[in-house]
Design a protein around this nucleic acid. Structure first.
Length: 150
DNA sequence: GCCAACGTTGGC
DNA sequence: GCCAACGTTGGC
């Protein structure tokens, strides 16, 4: 059975409309071990809430799904890339990414304010761990949020 | 642009 | 191994 996740992206850099246009997108640049570990256990077909962070307003913009499981993030080896990690080498990669496929854009954007107001979501790491960019979502939470998205 | 939260680094 | 300093994230 597919797992559910919430993944953050800054819409100024890569938002739901960018994914819709490209159909698929690589989730590179994650440099947090916990977020990386979550990506490592993702399976093709896992469902993802596409969250806009650092946005006005921030919130869930739509749905994507995992279309390629974790593989080494090439930006860690690229000196010219802002995500370059000198401790990583191609034979011992540190950072991984998954690829996502666009599924749908919510007819109704669900802002963070509204998520905060939903008692079913009170336990979500989204609120307690504000800096975590990849967050597991329970099926019940998933259903609630998707319903709000119309 | 500011700043609080918090993860990471590095000196000891 | 501790912990202060530092850097980054993300809401506002």
């Amino acid at each position: 059975m597919a797992s559910h996740w919430l993944m953050k992206s800054e819409p100024d850099v890569f938002g739901i409309d960018d994914l819709a246009k490209k159909k698929t997108g690589g989730w590179d640049g994650v440099r947090n071990y916990e977020a990386r570990n979550f990506m490592k256990v993702m399976k093709v077909g896992d469902k993802v809430l596409f969250y806009h962070s650092n946005a006005l307003p921030s919130g869930v913009a739509g749905i994507a799904e995992v279309c390629r499981e974790a593989y080494p993030d090439p930006t860690q080896f690229d000196r010219k890339d802002g995500h370059y990690d000198p401790k990583a080498a191609p034979d011992k990669p540190i950072w991984f990414q998954v690829d996502l496929r666009f599924v749908s854009k919510f007819p109704r954007f669900v802002p963070l304010d509204e998520l905060r107001g939903m008692p079913e979501l009170a336990d979500m790491a989204l609120f307690k761990r504000s800096r975590l960019s990849v967050i597991p979502v329970t099926p019940a939470q998933w259903m609630r949020i998707v319903k709000r998205g119309g």
